[in-house]
Amino acid sequence: MGEVNNVKPFTENVLRSNVDGYGFERGQNFDHIVYDDFMSQYLSVLARRSARWREIVGRKSRIQRSAKVKRFCRKGIPSEHRSAVWMSVSGAEERMKKRPHLYRNLLNGQHDEHLIETINLDVHRTFPDNIYFTAADDPSGLRRPLYNVLLAVATNNDKTGYCQGMNFIAGMLLVVLRNEEKAFWLMDTLINVILPDFYSPDMIGARTEQEVFGEIVKWKCPEVYKHLMKLDVSWQLIGAKWFLCIYADVMPVETVLRIWDCLFFEGPKILLRVAVTLIMQTKDKILASRDFTEAVGFLQRIVSEKEIVNCHIFMKNCFTLPGSFPDRKIENWRKVCQRRIASDP
């Protein structure tokens, strides 16, 4: 339990490899030319960011939340600091310190048989495209840690229990943190603090966010909204996996981590920004789709579009392209959408 052996951060990985620095196999359609082009620029960005972060992280054990750290998170956390920064800015570190024995106790306690069976079913179906999740008995593999984290999360949150989608989030956390207990606390903080009711039995939080996504598209990109309504494409069809997996197993890994850099500091608004940016960046192609099949087919492939691979540019676009996202407006929509869902189950 605890620390599992370290993997090299992806900055040291071998380009043109069939497996990336996080253990994900690159599919047949992986475009090495586009990726190499992006990486050659991104490595210098990472080096620059790394130097800036060292000034903040080096001095103290805990990173204070400040406007500067928020700005830094938006520009990306270098992989060597990611674990410490996520733990600090999300509040997970503090929660872990208050209950230092909780994780171990949860694993040592009694567990529901049905829960164990449900989790086991999904452990085998989490990132089969990642070398750390494929070998069942590999001691350095992540299947056992994944099982432990999911079991602890579901046991600690018995009203929520286990919800499909959590497996991809916990799996990604383990790939990055390589530490079960920290992955547990970040997951627990996500469920209870950052994304409340996303995974509850009525999934009201996630359903609300999908509706709010629709409202924002209507506001920021009315022609796309009209077009998709005409083709009868609902927001649930597009956004369910995006929101429930918080883009894990949806976007390229580097992009997911950059989104999470913002999520752990700022909360769920970033999920909406990303969703709307995806729509706005590919607006012309969406508008060119002539029927339901074409539109949904495109939207399901949207994340592999060329302009998404460069996560640095994409993240920059998330904060510029959609323009302002006032908290009050979003909060108001959340209330309106939640009422709408409640009245039309």
Binding site: L121, R125, P128, T134, Q164, F168, L237, G239, A240, K241
Partner: peptide
């Protein structure tokens, strides 16, 4: 969950079967 919906679909539409398939989240078609 796990009865094989996704593989039944991929067998019919693409003649593919994946023993190590992913859990389906959201809606696919």
């Amino acid at each position: 969950s796990g009865v094989g919906k996704t593989n039944l679909l991929s067998r019919f539409t693409r003649n593919e079967f994946n023993a190590e398939s992913k859990s389906t989240i959201g809606v696919e078609f």
